[in-house]
């Protein structure tokens, strides 16, 4: 009996905790999924103004293109591209109209140095891509002291242009 009590108590605590967790998980999982979807939708609406919000997933057949989608409303395309920056994974979302002209670009995920590479997240840098296309995408002002992050962004935009050609 002396040995059994600790084991029983620990097991009971584990079981009750797990049950409570399961309950919280059930209650919050839809909200979490909705929040994630909302974040993606917001980003897509931001890079492709005037989109209907109703997207059809496409396959660009490129390893670094995480997502390619076509707006069913006819506003254009959205691509999510991964590359590596100064500090690791670097994910950019690019919006394009039907002619392949960039309508917006947004840095979704990065581990860049705050104050340097992380500045590629700012609108000062990303808005330069608006109105450009595949041939002129590299023609932007890089951020001083953050060449690697800036080039990672440009590479992502160029990959999105290639993906655009692939799904056209």
């Amino acid at each position: 009996m002396k040995l059994a009590k600790p084991i029983i108590v620990l097991t009971l605590i584990c079981l009750i905790s797990s049950a409570l967790l399961g309950l919280t998980y059930e209650k919050t999982k839809d909200i979490i999924a909705a929040a994630e979807l909302q974040a993606t939708n917001d980003a897509m609406a931001e890079v492709l103004p005037g989109s209907s919000g109703d997207f059809e997933q496409l396959d660009a057949g490129m390893e670094n293109v995480l997502m390619a989608a076509k707006d069913n409303g006819g506003a254009g395309y959205v691509f999510q591209v991964e590359d590596s920056g100064y500090g690791g994974a670097y994910v950019v979302m690019v919006g394009m109209d039907n002619e392949g002209t960039i309508t917006g670009a947004k840095l979704l995920e990065h581990n860049e140095t705050p104050g340097l590479g992380a500045k590629t997240e700012g609108a000062d840098f990303t808005s330069q891509f608006i109105g450009k296309n595949q041939s002129s995408a590299a023609d932007v002002d890089m951020i001083t002291g953050a060449t690697i992050s800036s080039s990672a962004f440009i590479r992502c935009v160029e990959a999105a242009c290639e993906a655009f050609n692939a799904v056209q």
Partner: peptide, 10 residues
């Protein structure tokens, strides 16, 4: 997978 933290620490 929601049991991740609890299982890992144990």
């Amino acid at each position: 997978s929601y049991l991740q933290t609890i299982v890992f620490i144990l």
